[in-house]
């Protein structure tokens, strides 16, 4: 069986051509820009963009899907160096350095369910601001920024989830919407030095 060297050469030349055409043509660029403009026009034309809806960031933690208002989100970042703190509850994962600020990182699964945190959860940190505090939430995956309607939300009190004020509502998509202000006012997350 003889080898078809020319076929191999042709393949390599094709690869070369593919590599050389790295910049999109002006037509492609124009199409992209047109698409963006259309999207923007669509958003501006939408009637319910004012008070009825609000933007949230979704993320997962354990088996649960969560959402938090983008107004309270400061940043999303990967965990690079997480410094553990001694003599703290299990949901307190440690501290990180974010923009020269010390941020505490909490594991919300441990916080809500009381289970021990698994090491695979140390993926991302969502820095959330509420009631004068800036606290990092350790999450598994970060989802998207999306708009949810205020009226689809079901209050936590009506479904009996009153043990934690932070859980304010459950959306129609099954998202657990967190209220950062209420969550960080909960005394259980406040740690005091015990003499």
């Amino acid at each position: 069986m003889s080898i078809d060297w020319n076929a191999i050469r042709t393949t390599i030349q094709e690869t070369q051509q593919t590599l050389e055409t790295d910049t999109p043509s002006p037509a492609v660029r124009g199409a992209i820009l047109q698409r963006r403009a259309d999207q923007l026009a669509e958003r501006n034309a939408a009637p319910n963009t004012t008070a009825d809806t609000f933007a949230v960031l979704t993320f997962t933690c354990g088996n649960e899907h969560y959402a938090v208002s983008v107004q309270s989100v400061l940043a999303v970042l990967p965990i690079r160096t997480l410094t553990p703190i001694p003599c703290v509850p299990t949901y307190y994962r440690g501290i990180i350095n974010w923009n020269s600020k010390i941020i505490s990182v909490l594991d919300i699964v441990s916080l809500f369910e009381g289970a021990a945190p698994s090491p695979q959860r140390e993926q991302f940190v969502v820095v959330v601001q509420g009631s004068g505090l800036e606290i990092g939430l350790n999450v598994n995956t970060v989802g998207v920024v999306t708009e949810i309607a205020q009226r689809t939300l079901v209050s936590a009190q009506t479904i009996g989830q009153d043990w934690l004020d932070g859980i304010s509502a459950v959306s129609a998509e099954g998202l657990t919407v967190l209220n950062a202000d209420q969550l960080f006012r909960d005394p259980r997350i406040h740690i005091y030095e015990e003499a």
């Binding site: 999207q39 960031l57 983008v70 107004q71 940043a75 970042l77 990967p78 920024v145």
Partner: peptide, 30 residues
């Protein structure tokens, strides 16, 4: 990965800017 985080943060910032950040939301999504 870094671009992903940047885009995510850009999305968040755009959302926080509400009406003023509408154009930027599109770009951040992209």
């Amino acid at each position: 990965t870094q671009a992903n985080f940047l885009a995510m943060n850009a999305q968040i910032e755009a959302a926080r800017a509400s009406e003023h950040g509408q154009g930027f939301v599109v770009v951040a999504d992209e």
